[in-house]
């Protein structure tokens, strides 16, 4: 109980959350590069954009976060998916 009280300060939670988000960012980037199924790779890039948008909000850049959420998560993914529908789904 005492341990919980001094470990869970807001500052520590903030830093731990940032660390986890950055780790997930790198993991999602690696996932989208090594994945053979291009559909999953595109979902990976979309995840990178989503995490990036949350990180911009944590860095006090709401304008950039809004842009990244609208362009990176929605439109770039849509354009990639359209291109994928017109080409092949799997990487040989």
């Amino acid at each position: 109980m005492i341990l919980l009280q001094w470990t869970l300060t807001p500052e520590l939670l903030y830093q731990a959350g940032t660390g986890i988000l950055l780790f997930l960012l790198v993991v999602a980037a690696i996932f989208s590069v090594v994945q053979k199924d291009l559909l999953m790779a595109i979902v990976g890039t979309s995840l990178v954009s989503l995490i990036l948008s949350v990180l911009f909000l944590l860095l006090h850049a709401p304008d950039v976060a809004l842009t990244e959420a609208a362009i990176g998560v929605a439109l770039t993914t849509a354009i990639f998916l359209i291109a994928l529908r017109k080409t092949g789904r799997y990487e040989e």
């Binding site: 304008d63 976060a65 809004l66 842009t67 362009i71 929605a74």
Partner: peptide, 9 residues
């Protein structure tokens, strides 16, 4: 926060 680029998108 926001503006022409975000709204247009």
């Amino acid at each position: 926060p926001g503006g022409g680029f975000q709204g247009g998108t």
